[in-house]
């Protein structure tokens, strides 16, 4: 038995927003339940009111519109694994979603929940940060859109009011001459704490040089971090193995500064270099030495 609370199942987003505005705190939104239910059970949360939005099918849609990819916050991870809009350069979204938990968790957990709970090991976050995603938040009185990187707090957690609902995540579709990839260390859910991940997006000019590169790392801090020094090294260059070594070294340095003297620092510094190397090689095979096979 879980702690006592009142439970509501609104039939529309509007109804949910009205409820959230009027119900007293502490209140909690329920989407997939994969984080909320265990937290209730462990007694970490004791809301007086739980508002379930899991049935709002209008928030499950995934579509492409005017150059933007729009993902409803209630899309389950397994809904993100197959759609055609996550092929090609966008496949990092599908790759990250496909590696979360086990299949059951992927059927239940939602992208919105993963973002709002903002776990340092929230696997969807590095790819979305690399893609320059924004989130749209609604409340009864209006709505706002913010960059995901600003929505995630510097001390962990997400900047969301108890009256707000994250309804959608979006990012600009990448041009045709672009690549992207995602890599994660560690496999099972229970290893979440030590799990380091990296996502990259590379946009090329018409000569095959890197016009813009974005590299986002997960689990090295309270929220995913971009690595500007590494991104600057890549800009304007042609992908090649020696360039990769320079980039990987600068990633190691940047992470060293971030982690300081924390006890996990030396492990993470080494691990992050490996993950950065892999993610770039996966995005663009020109980073590989001839004969090297990316496992």
């Amino acid at each position: 038995m879980l702690p006592s609370f009142n439970y509501y199942q609104p039939a529309s987003l509007q109804e949910a927003l009205t409820l959230l505005a009027s119900l007293p705190r502490p209140k909690k939104l329920l989407a997939g339940g994969t984080d909320l239910v265990p937290a209730l059970r462990r007694g970490e949360l004791y809301p007086a009111n739980v508002v379930s939005i899991s049935g709002l099918s209008e928030m499950k849609e995934i579509k492409m519109e005017r150059g933007l990819i729009l993902i409803g916050a209630l899309a389950a991870f397994s809904d993100l694994v197959c759609p055609p809009c996550f092929e090609g350069a966008h496949r990092l979204v599908a790759e990250a979603a496909g590696q979360i938990g086990g299949p059951q968790i992927r059927n239940q957990g939602t992208i919105g929940g993963n973002i709002v709970n903002a776990s340092p090991a929230g696997d969807m976050l590095p790819p979305l940060v690399a893609l320059g995603a924004r989130v749209r938040l609604c409340r009864e009185a209006g709505e706002r859109a913010v960059f995901l990187s600003d929505f995630l707090g510097d001390a962990g957690g997400a900047c969301i009011a108890p009256e707000e609902i994250l309804v959608e995540v979006s990012f600009p579709a990448l041009p045709v001459n672009a690549a992207g990839s995602f890599v994660k260390l560690g496999r099972r859910n229970s290893l979440a704490i030590s799990r380091i991940s990296a996502a990259t997006v590379i946009i090329y000019d018409s000569y095959g040089r890197i016009e813009e590169a974005r590299l986002a790392l997960g689990s090295v801090g309270p929220k995913p971090v971009r690595v500007p020094s590494a991104e600057a090294l890549l800009k304007g260059q042609k992908p090649a193995p020696d360039l990769l070594e320079e980039v990987v070294a600068s990633v190691g340095e940047a992470v060293g500064v971030l982690l300081g003297s924390r006890s996990s620092a030396s492990y993470k510094k080494a691990a992050v270099r490996g993950v950065a190397r892999q993610v770039l090689q996966k995005a663009d095979p020109r980073f590989m030495n001839s004969g090297e096979i990316n496992g």
Partner: peptide, 21 residues
């Protein structure tokens, strides 16, 4: 939500019944 012993199908998809209110 770790072991899958409680797996049931909801609308045809396997989910963990221990994580569903």
């Amino acid at each position: 939500g770790e072991c899958g012993a409680c797996t049931v199908l909801i609308n045809g998809r396997p989910v963990n019944a221990c994580l569903v209110l």
